[in-house]
Measured scan of single mutants.
Amino acid sequence: NLFVALYDFVASGDNTLSITKGEKLRVLGYNHNGEWCEAQTKNGQGWVPSNYITPVN
């Protein structure tokens, strides 16, 4: 599942992941309501807002 970041997101805690607009990432899963997804980039792994990313076509 390859996705791309639509916006910059700055991590606010130990379990969140900073991403940069245009960065590619893999989604590993979603939380119970789908608002957050666990993602992996070359810089690490953590939670990002699911509305900040979109699938790569």
Rank of each mutant, 00 (worst) to 15 (best):
V56R: 08
N57A: 14
D8W: 01
S12Q: 03
Y30F: 10
E23S: 09
A5Y: 01
L25I: 08
W47Y: 13
F3L: 01
V4A: 07
K42H: 05
N51R: 10
S50D: 04
G13R: 11
G46L: 05
V4H: 07
Q45T: 12
N31R: 13
D14A: 10
G29S: 10
V10A: 11
G13F: 08
R26A: 14
P49V: 00
L17E: 01
F9H: 03
A5I: 01
F9P: 00
A39T: 12
S12C: 05
A39M: 03
D8A: 10
I19V: 07
A5Q: 00
E35N: 03
T41P: 01
S12P: 14
V10Y: 04
G29C: 06
N57P: 13
Y30R: 14
V48R: 00
G13S: 12
F3A: 05
Y52L: 13
F9A: 11
V56Y: 13
E23V: 03
D14E: 07
N15M: 14
K42E: 15
T16K: 10
K21V: 06
N57L: 14
V10R: 11
G34A: 13
V27R: 06
K21T: 05
H32D: 14
G46F: 04
L17P: 03
K24R: 12
P55K: 10
S50A: 13
L6Q: 13
N57H: 04
I19D: 01
A39L: 09
K42I: 10
L2R: 11
G13Q: 11
L28A: 08
E38Q: 05
K42G: 14
V56T: 13
H32R: 14
G44Q: 14
L6T: 13
L6P: 00
A39Q: 00
W36N: 04
W36K: 02
E38F: 08
K24Q: 02
N43G: 14
H32F: 08
T16S: 03
W47L: 13
S12H: 03
K42C: 10
V56F: 14
V56D: 06
Y7V: 11
A11D: 10
L6E: 12
R26L: 10
L28D: 07
E38L: 06
T54D: 03
N1G: 15
G46S: 01
K24F: 03
F9N: 03
N43V: 12
G46P: 00
T41I: 04
T54S: 12
A39C: 03
L2T: 10
E38M: 08
Y52T: 15
T20D: 04
F3G: 04
K42N: 06
V48A: 02
T54H: 12
D14M: 07
S12A: 14
N51Y: 06
E23L: 01
N51C: 11
G46C: 09
G34H: 13
P49W: 02
E35F: 04
I53C: 13
H32K: 15
V27F: 01
G22M: 14
N33P: 03
I53A: 04
Y7G: 12
W36P: 00
Q45S: 13
N43R: 11
K21H: 15
V27K: 02
D8N: 10
T41L: 03
G22Q: 02
S18F: 13
L6H: 08
Q45A: 15
D14P: 08
A11R: 09
Q40K: 15
D14I: 06
N31W: 05
T20K: 04
L6V: 11
G46R: 03
E35P: 07
N57V: 13
K24E: 13
W47P: 04
S18H: 11
G29H: 07
D8E: 07
Y52Q: 05
G34T: 09
K21L: 14
L2S: 07
V10E: 12
L25N: 01
G34E: 15
N57R: 08
N31Q: 09
Q45F: 11
S18V: 06
T16P: 07
N15H: 10
T54L: 07
L17N: 05
T20V: 11
D8S: 09
T54C: 13
E38C: 05
Y52E: 01
N15T: 11
Y30G: 11
P55G: 09
E35H: 02
T20S: 09
N15G: 14
L2I: 15
V4P: 00
E38P: 01
G34Q: 14
E38V: 06
T20Y: 09
N43S: 14
S18M: 12
F9S: 04
T54P: 01
L2P: 02
E23K: 02
V10N: 14
G44D: 05
A39H: 01
Y30N: 07
W36S: 13
G44M: 05
L17Y: 14
G29Y: 05
N51S: 12
G29F: 03
E38Y: 04
N43H: 08
V4G: 02
N15A: 14
S50R: 14
Y7I: 14
A11Y: 05
V10W: 08
G22V: 00
W36T: 02
V27W: 05
T20H: 05
I53K: 02
G44T: 02
T20P: 01
S50L: 10
V27A: 08
T16I: 04
V4S: 12
N43D: 13
E38A: 03
I19K: 02
T41A: 05
F9L: 11
L28E: 07
Q40W: 09
N15E: 12
L25Y: 10
S18G: 10
S18P: 10
N31I: 09
P55W: 02
R26T: 15
V48P: 00
Y52A: 15
W36V: 05
W47R: 08
T41M: 05
N15Q: 13
L28K: 05
T20G: 06
Y30W: 09
G34C: 07
A39G: 13
Q40C: 10
L17D: 01
P55L: 09
K24L: 02
G13K: 15
N51E: 12
D8H: 04
K42L: 08
A5V: 06
S50M: 14
F3S: 05
N51T: 11
I19W: 00
V10P: 08
S12W: 04
K24N: 01
Y7T: 11
V27P: 07
Y30L: 08
D8V: 00
Y7A: 11
Y52S: 12
E23T: 03
R26W: 10
E35G: 09
T54M: 12
A5W: 01
N33S: 11
G22W: 02
C37Y: 11
N43Y: 06
Y52C: 13
N51H: 09
K21N: 12
L6N: 08
N1Q: 07
V56M: 15
V48M: 03
A39R: 01
N51P: 10
Q40M: 13
Q45L: 12
S50K: 15
P55H: 09
F3R: 05
A11W: 03
N33F: 11
A11C: 09
W36E: 09
F9G: 01
G29V: 06
G29D: 13
N15S: 12
K21A: 12
W47S: 04
I53M: 06
D14N: 12
S18Q: 14
Y30A: 08
R26H: 12
I19T: 04
G13H: 08
V56G: 08
K21S: 05
L17F: 03
Q45E: 06
G22A: 05
Y7H: 12
F3E: 03
D8K: 04
P49K: 10
L6W: 02
N33R: 07
N51V: 06
L2E: 06
G22D: 15
W36A: 07
R26N: 15
S12V: 07
N57G: 04
L17C: 10
H32A: 14
L2Q: 08
N1I: 02
K42Q: 12
K24Y: 05
P55R: 11
N57S: 12
N43L: 12
N1S: 02
P55I: 12
A5F: 04
L17M: 14
N43F: 02
